[in-house]
Amino acid sequence: MILKHLLLGFSFGLSMSIISWMVGMIGNSLLLKTSYYEKLSYLNFIPKKSTNKAIGIDQFRWLVKNTFFRFLNQAIKVEGKQTDLKSIRHQMTLAEVSHLIEFIFVTLAAGYQVLNVSLVFGLMMMIPNVILNLYPTLLQQENKRRIDLMLQRQKSM
């Protein structure tokens, strides 16, 4: 029974995480029209670079840059020195908030499954959710911090 919940929970979590991308886009477009969106632009869950490194954000960045994931959001691409960093930062904020909405959506679904199916099922749902929704949020936050530093350097010149 536990093996069944492990496999079904993981596959259901993977499906929910991919489906949640549509929920995130819709939720983000609705949230974009509110006054709270500017505050969301400066979210920073993990401020220390060492913590990001410890949880594997560098490996996740490599995975995004070197697999098919690099084709998913072409608006976030630094081409050279003439790239508009403010535009890139805005696109990163859009992606970050979408992934955060997606993470919350799947987390609520996993919580519901914990109550109705089993703890193992719900926890297994969270594995793909963390990889496909939380890690992209954390990666965007780190990248935005790097862009903010470059923008500060440009202002001081």
Rank of each mutant, 00 (worst) to 15 (best):
I76Y: 06
P47H: 07
T34Y: 04
G13I: 03
N28W: 07
P136L: 10
F12C: 12
W62M: 03
V120W: 05
K49I: 14
L139N: 13
V23Q: 08
I26Q: 00
R70T: 03
F71G: 02
R153E: 13
K48Q: 14
Q140G: 00
Q141N: 00
I101P: 05
E102W: 05
Q141V: 09
M92Q: 13
L94N: 14
I104C: 07
E38R: 11
S118D: 00
I2G: 10
A95K: 14
F69T: 04
M22E: 10
F60C: 01
L100M: 15
N143Q: 15
Q154F: 02
M22H: 11
L14Y: 13
R153D: 01
Q152W: 01
S15Y: 06
T83G: 00
M125F: 06
L139T: 07
S20D: 00
G122V: 04
A75V: 08
S118R: 08
I127N: 03
Q140M: 09
S87N: 12
S41E: 14
L100N: 11
M126A: 11
L94E: 14
S87W: 09
I88Y: 03
S87A: 10
S35K: 12
Y112W: 14
V97K: 07
S29P: 04
H5S: 12
N28P: 04
I18W: 06
V114M: 14
E96I: 03
V64Y: 06
D58W: 07
G9C: 01
A95F: 12
K81M: 06
S20C: 05
K155D: 00
F60Y: 15
N52Q: 09
M150A: 13
S118F: 04
L139R: 12
Q59S: 12
N66W: 04
D84H: 06
P128H: 03
S50E: 13
S50H: 05
A54R: 08
R70D: 08
S35G: 04
K155P: 05
V23H: 01
S156K: 11
I18F: 15
H99C: 12
E96F: 07
N44R: 05
W62V: 08
N52D: 12
F10I: 01
M124N: 01
Q74A: 14
I18A: 15
R61P: 02
S35N: 04
F60L: 08
L3N: 05
